[in-house]
């Protein structure tokens, strides 16, 4: 029984909690991708760098607040800088839409041209972020680091394994929950949200019903920028900020959106958690878990790790390829990319 509890705590500490946290971050990121796809009908490659841009603004604001000698107690300062970071990111994204995407939209171009334009936007934002904040790691999480420390947990429970719960993990899950609930409420219950779904469902009929396409597009960008900033800040608080990492997040986020069914918000959430769980669970070394669960004195040679951590992006990629081959509409019957 004791061994069983130890194995469970070990798994919670290294697989369950990290994948729920990472899954929440991916889910919010994938939601932005899926919304842009369902309204603007193209895969937005600039989403990862939009996240990086928003996070960068939040970091600058955090430094500003810290320079004033203020803090939020146990919570990271970045949380109160979120509204400013979101506002700046919205302004940038709306500006880019006005200058770049609107031009192509008015010409009614093929979606692939918009995708290529978004690759250009991606490089541009990438450059802006690297020039302004640099390419290195930035850690901006302040406040209390842990809610539960491993040592305290061990003393409390008398188990051999400790459970550490970091503040940023709890913040991620709570904020993600609030954001998703708010987004789904908005899409299901408000007139504007419904008009977005209508536009996504049947563009021609939406036009016949008097729904204004440019307004729907603007609201979509506002929501996408908000989600991107929140996802970026949560990820940065949890794992540190580095522009290149945010660019890399594009792959698991797209995998999540497509696995869930692109264009389906609920799919993005489910997809985010499935991808995160797969990544974490497949790269974890299970040696000690097996030793706890096996008979006394049972020893495992090697790490009992399925895939090395360096290959974690391969997991998203393989899931993406399998979904596209076997079920291109994804779990929740989205569109085909």
């Amino acid at each position: 029984m004791h061994d069983f509890a130890n194995a469970f705590i070990l798994l919670s500490n290294y697989v369950l909690i990290p994948s729920i946290t990472y899954g929440s971050q991916l889910a919010i990121g994938a939601l932005g991708i899926t919304l842009v796809f369902s309204i603007l009908r193209f895969a937005n490659f600039a989403h990862g760098d939009t996240m990086a841009f928003g996070t960068m603004v939040a970091i600058f604001c955090t430094w500003g607040v810290q320079a004033l000698g203020l803090s939020l107690g146990p919570l990271p300062v970045a949380l109160i800088t979120l509204p400013v970071a979101i506002a700046v990111t919205i302004a940038l994204v709306l500006g880019i839409d006005k200058i770049i995407y609107q031009f192509y939209r008015n010409k009614k171009v093929e979606p692939i041209i918009l995708v290529m334009a978004s690759v250009g936007v991606m490089f541009m934002m990438n450059g802006i972020v690297r020039i302004l904040i640099g390419t290195g790691d930035v850690s901006f999480a302040d406040g209390a680091r842990f809610i539960i420390r491993a040592r305290e947990f061990r003393e409390m429970t008398g188990l051999d394994e400790g459970l550490a719960l970091r503040t940023t993990q709890v913040i991620t899950v709570v904020v993600a929950g609030v954001v998703m609930a708010a987004l789904f409420w908005f899409l299901q219950k408000t007139r504007t949200g419904k008009s977005m779904r209508a536009f996504s469902d049947n563009e021609d009929l939406a036009l016949l019903s008097g729904i204004k396409p440019e307004r729907v597009v603007q609201i979509t960008w506002i929501i996408a920028a908000t989600l991107a900033t929140i996802a970026g800040v949560l990820y940065g608080l949890d794992k540190g900020f580095r522009p290149f990492t945010y660019f890399q997040l594009l792959l698991p986020m797209f995998a999540a959106a497509i696995l869930g069914g692109i264009g389906q918000p609920i799919g993005a959430v489910v997809g985010g958690f499935v991808i995160a769980f797969s990544e974490v669970a497949l790269t974890y070394a299970y040696r000690r878990v097996f030793e706890y669960l096996g008979p006394d004195g049972f020893e495992v040679e090697g790490l009992a790790q399925l895939i090395e951590t360096e290959y974690k992006f391969a997991i998203s990629f393989i899931i993406l390829v399998i979904v596209l081959l076997v079920r291109p509409t994804g779990i929740f019957k989205g569109r085909v990319l």
Binding site: R191, K194, S195, R197, A198, D201, N202, L205, A206
Partner: peptide, 16 residues
């Protein structure tokens, strides 16, 4: 119709 929306929502969109 808007296939992914309920009948009532379809009608509401008509009244947009």
């Amino acid at each position: 119709v808007f296939p992914g929306m309920t009948v009532e929502e379809n009608l509401q969109m008509g009244a947009f």
